[in-house]
Amino acid sequence: MDRIKHAFASKTNLLNTYFTAGYPSLHDTIPLAKALVDAGADILEIGMPFSDPLADGPVIQGSSSVALANGMNLPVLFEQLKGLRAAVPETPVLLMGYLNPVMQFGVEEFCRQAAEVGVDGLILPDLPLAEYEEFYQETFKKYGLKAVFLITPQTSEERIRHLDRLSEAFLYLVSGPGTTGGTTLPDAVAQQQYFERIAALKLRNPRLIGFGIGDKAGFERACEHAEGAIIGSALIRALEDATDAPAEAARFVRGIKPA
């Protein structure tokens, strides 16, 4: 069984933590991954920094800028990730980022190296579904990489069903309209209805809720409607002024998911 399927089959209320590779310092990537998992994170999402992250709010824009200034890029990241599976042997790891750096690196070479270092899946929000099916799906499959698709309150049922058929990982439920870190939630009722509407579809894939989830209460609320949640911006914020980033990351995870 692959790592993603195994995680969802063996655990409930999964916590997926996002952090930006190369932030706060260039070589924090692997120490942070290990600290997060040791503290209880169930899935890791490692952000590949991009100069123009359209789907991200100010916090992840900021961490991306810092990471790029620190010298992070895909060759450096893959070099660092050679130590990934020694640090976190069983945890599903996804790379999240934008299409342009992947295109410039070369899609096939990117997939080959990602698979080689033990990455399980990819989240590329600006890769359109039609392009994915026509040009990318085969390459992802060849290297055993699972694509994770986003669903928003505006996504039609027909499209959700289509994404559910394509997905072999989990569906990423965007909590409301907005970028990462701060969705504008008009009212809790509308959000509740959205989560219930998705739950009622009886999708074959598990769901994780993300965007704007930043504390224990938010995590637990998300877990009532899905298999777990994704936390990114709040973690990045916690790392902003940390003198010991891995220790701070561990403290953050324990605050969300006490042992």
Binding site: P125, D126, E131, L150, T152
Partner: peptide, 19 residues
């Protein structure tokens, strides 16, 4: 799909897809 030769398309995140 909005292509002029190899250029164009609509590389937008799902959040923008409906718009």
């Amino acid at each position: 799909r909005g292509y002029y030769g190899q250029f164009g398309g609509a590389f937008v995140p799902e959040m923008l897809y409906p718009n």
